[in-house]
Nucleic acid binder design. Structure first.
Length: 226
DNA sequence: GCATTAACCACAG
DNA sequence: CTGTGGTTAATGC
């Protein structure tokens, strides 16, 4: 969409920073940048995948249709790769990604990306580091979410949004109550109830989708207690 | 038994 | 899309 060279991109992944100039030129030749609006589908579960997808700006949810309902696997903030496992791990996408804020995304041809991995060990190593960190984070989330009760899970999620995504105590929820349920693994009703409870206890302030964390320490306690 | 937690349903803004 | 109330099932004390 834009003719910007990857070399000049200010949103390069840590791995891509280790590419040589010629390699960045090579990447530029084999990628396409696309803008998505909030709510747009970026790639779809069960479709054929031939691109590495890099979230350049914005926010996206990675989600999978399960046997009974939708599950949001994680929220991804740019800059970050969106689907290395789903591209290299299988020919078919194992999950979908949808923009939850306006977003720009680079599609990089998988074969050309693979060549860069083969040619540049530092680049490859940095990608592995990134994949490992993500796996550890996912493991931690998996354990926490499966052992905590609903209030603990909600507290954990609110803190995570505030600390890792927005870096503020006040933020606009990027997800509906239903989607929060899909993320945490509970019903939309439980989300509603717990959120109004937290509000009544003065731990958060709630104006529709705008959330302010008033007492992070208490939220921390709820998160730890489970 | 009784209390707690949370899902499911239904109905109302 | 949300909030709320009633009902129900599972689990723990």
């Amino acid at each position: 969409m834009k003719e910007l060279n990857c070399k000049d991109c200010i949103n390069k992944s840590p791995a891509a920073r280790l590419l040589k100039e010629s390699e960045l030129e090579y990447m530029t030749q084999n990628r396409v940048e696309v803008n998505f609006k909030k709510g747009d589908l970026i790639f779809k579960q069960n479709s054929y995948s031939t691109n590495i997808i890099f979230l350049k700006t914005g926010l996206a949810k990675v989600h999978m249709q399960g046997p009974f309902k939708e599950k949001i696997l994680r929220i991804v903030k740019a800059p970050s790769y969106l689907g290395i496992p789903t591209t290299f791990g299988d020919k078919i996408n194992q999950y979908s990604a949808t923009a939850i804020e306006d977003t720009s995304v680079c599609f990089i041809d998988a074969n050309h990306f693979k060549k860069l991995i083969h040619d540049n060990g530092k680049f490859a190593y940095e990608l592995i580091i990134d994949l490992c960190r993500n796996e550890l984070l996912d493991d931690l989330r998996c354990v926490n979410q499966s052992q905590k009760q609903i209030p603990g899970r909600i507290a954990e999620t609110l803190l995570s949004l505030s600390q890792h995504i927005y870096h503020k105590n006040t933020f606009i929820l990027p997800l509906s109550r239903n989607e929060l349920g899909d993320l945490i693994g509970t019903s939309r009703e439980s989300i509603s109830r717990i959120l109004t409870d937290l509000c009544n206890e003065g731990i958060i302030d709630l104006k529709a989708k705008e959330i302010t964390i008033l007492k992070p320490e208490l939220l921390e306690q709820i998160s730890k207690k489970g």
